[in-house]
Write a protein that binds this DNA or RNA. Structure first.
Lengths: 254, 254
DNA sequence: ATACACCTTAACGTAACGTGAAGGTCAATA
DNA sequence: TATTGACCTTCACGTTACGTTAAGGTGTAT
C-alpha cells in the first residue's frame, strides 16, 4: 500500500504540512518521489510515523525523536527518563506559578489579609527565591555556600512575628539611611543609627555577626552593580554613603 | 533619577535587548529620547517595569500584560483568574504526559507486565482519549452525545478480564477480516464469522445492539475517510469488504 | 588621537508547524 | 477536447520573547 501526503495524513490524523515538515527536517523521508515530484510513502514509513507520533504525544521534541527513531543504537529509555526529569521540573515550576497567581488573586480580591499566615509562608519562599536569583551568586562568592544555605534556612524557619519584625526593620534601614543621606554626614547620629538598624537586620539572616563581614557586605553594595543600582535607585550615591557609614560604625578600615 | 537602557536593565535584572523589545511592542516606552537618540527612562517607567515583571513572573503573556498595565480600566484580577484557568489546564496536561511517560519507561524496562492493572487503567483512559480525538465528532454526529458517553462509561467500567477479552476480540476481528478479504467473498463463511466477531466486539461498547446501528457503523467505515484509511491500511478495499459482509450479516439493505 | 564603554537600528535564529500564494498534475466530466 | 476540481509542489511569512551578532554613531578619559 502506498500513500501520498494527504492519504497518510488522514490515516495518521496530521496535516500534509506536518508531513512536508518532517521530510524537511529529515525525520521522515518518503520512500520515493514519483515522476511528478509527489512524495510517496510505504508501509515502513507508516510504521515510523506511528513511532514518531507516539513520542510526540509524550511531549518529546522532534529533535530528540529524530535520535530515537533514526539511530537504532540510541537508548530510547534513557532519553525518556531524561525527558521525564524535564517534565517534572516543568510541573514544579508550574505549581509554584499557580500558587503565586492564586495568592495574587486572593490579595487583590481582599480575601486574604496581609498578615495571613499562608500568604506569609508563600512570601518567605518568594523572598528566598528572589534573593537567590538576584544576588545568589555574588553572595555565595563572598560568603561561601554554607553561609547562604544557613541564611536561607534561618529565613525559612522564622515565625510570622519574626518575619514582621525583619520586614519592619528593613523598612527602617531604608528610611533612616534615606534621611541620613540628606544630612550628607556618614559619621552623623542618623547615619550611625541607620548602620545599627542595618546590623540588627542582617543579624536576622546571619547566624553569627562579625564587623568584618558587615563591612564586607557594605563594600559589596558598592562593588556589585546590581546592589549598587538597587540602593542608588532613588538617590544616586546612597550605596557609597551606606558603605562609609558602616565602615565608621564597625571601625573596619578598607 | 534617569536611566539609560543598561542602567535600568541592571536595576531590574533584565537585558537591554528586552527593554528595546518592550519599547518596540509598545509595552514600555522611554520617558524621552535624548539628542543622541538614547532611550531615557524616569521613575514612572521604573515602576511600570516592576509591574510588567511582576506579571511576567506569573507567566502572563506580554500581550496580556500590555492590557493590564496600559489600560487603567482593565480588570487585572479577571485577567489573572483567566490566566489561572489556563495554567491549571496546562498542569493537567502535564500530569497526564508525565503519567504516560512513566508508564512507557516502566514497560520498556520490563518493570511492569502487560497485565498489570495500573497500566491497564492508564491504557483504557488513553484508548478513550484517542477514540475521542480521532473519531469523537463523527461518532457523536451519527449516534448522539449520550450514546458516546455511555460507550465511554462502559469502557471505563470494564474489569481487566473484560478488557483483555475485548482486546483479544478486536484482534480476532482484524485477523478474520484480513483472511476473509483474501477469499474475496463477503458472503463466505469466513467473512460472516468475522462479522459475528465484529458484532460481539461492538457489543462490549454499546449497551444495546441493533442490526441497523451495526450496518450504519459499517457504512461509516467506508464514508468517513479516517475510518476508511484505518481499515484500508494494509489492504485497500478492506473497508468496503467489511461493510458488504456486515450488510449481508445483518440483512440490512442500503 | 585613540581607546573603550556606551548607545542605535537591522536582521537572523529559535519550535513546530498554520496559512496562503503561485503554479504543476491527474482524473472525471461537459 | 477543454475545463473543472482535487490533488500535488515549493516558497515564504507569521507565531513568542527575546539572544545574538553586525555595522555604525556617541561620550569621555587618557
Amino acid at each position: 500500500m502506498e500513500y501520498t501526503v494527504q492519504k497518510l495524513g488522514k490515516l495518521a490524523g496530521i496535516s500534509t504540512r506536518t508531513l512536508r515538515y518532517y521530510d524537511e527536517i529529515g525525520i521522515l523521508k518518503p520512500a520515493r518521489i514519483n515522476s511528478s515530484g509527489y512524495r510517496i510513502y510505504g508501509k515502513k514509513e507508516v510504521d515510523k510515523l506511528q513511532q514518531i507520533l507516539f513520542f510526540r504525544e509524550l511531549g518529546v521534541s522532534l529533535d530528540n525523536i529524530k535520535n530515537i527513531v533514526t539511530a537504532p543504537s540510541f537508548d530510547g529509555a534513557a532519553a525518556l527518563r531524561e525527558h521525564r526529569e524535564k517534565l517534572l521540573e516543568k510541573r514544579a515550576q508550574l505549581n509554584s506559578l499557580i500558587a503565586n497567581v492564586e495568592k495574587t488573586i486572593a490579595v487583590t480580591e481582599g480575601r486574604m489579609k496581609m498578615s495571613d499566615s499562608e500568604k506569609f509562608a508563600g512570601f518567605k519562599q518568594k523572598m528566598i527565591d528572589e534573593n537567590e536569583k538576584k544576588y545568589g551568586n555574588e553572595i555565595r562568592d563572598k560568603f561561601g555556600e554554607e553561609a547562604v544555605d544557613q541564611s536561607n534556612a534561618k529565613l525559612m524557619n522564622m515565625t510570622e512575628e519574626e518575619y514582621n519584625a525583619v520586614t519592619k526593620l528593613e523598612q527602617q534601614v531604608k528610611e533612616t539611611f534615606a534621611l541620613a543621606f540628606a544630612t550628607g554626614d556618614p559619621s552623623g547620629e542618623l547615619a550611625q543609627k541607620a548602620a545599627d538598624f542595618h546590623k540588627k537586620w542582617i543579624t536576622f539572616y546571619w547566624n553569627k555577626y562579625s564587623k568584618e563581614a558587615h563591612a564586607g557586605l557594605a563594600q559589596m553594595y558598592v562593588d556589585d552593580e546590581r546592589f549598587k543600582a538597587y540602593y542608588d535607585k532613588d538617590q544616586p550615591g546612597t550605596a557609597e554613603f551606606i558603605r562609609d557609614a558602616i565602615r565608621i560604625y564597625t571601625g573596619v578600615k578598607e
